[in-house]
């Protein structure tokens, strides 16, 4: 990677950085009580939670740091945090 004009960086390249390795806890999307409110996608500081289909959400394990905000904010307690298996 050549340094261009003092260090220009190409846009949207942070995806190369797998912050998922930081994770100690991982969310489990129970998909039992989901009301499709999308709160989990909105509050994720990584923006790595996404909707798969109706009332079905998941997260991208490459980036999820396991902060637990999605589980905390889920209004129907449909997300659990469990210890990461390493």
């Amino acid at each position: 990677m050549k340094v261009i004009l003092g260090g220009l960086a190409q846009p949207a390249t942070s995806l190369a950085n797998n912050t998922g390795t930081w994770r100690n806890f991982r969310p489990v999307y129970l998909q039992k009580a989901c009301i499709d409110c999308k709160m989990c996608t909105i509050v994720c500081p990584e923006g790595c939670v996404y909707r798969v289909s109706e009332k079905k959400f998941t997260f991208n394990a490459n980036y999820c740091k396991g902060c637990g905000m999605c589980a905390e904010e889920c209004p129907v307690d449909d997300i659990e945090m469990i210890m990461e298996e390493k």
Binding site: V3, G6, G7, L8, A9, P11
Partner: peptide, 28 residues
């Protein structure tokens, strides 16, 4: 050649760590 525009949304003024800062100074 490079400028701030949504057509090519480049990042100016990135942080260069010990692995690349010296090279940018050398380029200067």
């Amino acid at each position: 050649q490079y400028y701030l525009t949504p057509k090519n949304p480049i990042t100016f003024g990135a942080m260069l760590g010990p692995e690349s800062y010296m090279e940018s100074r050398c380029q200067l």
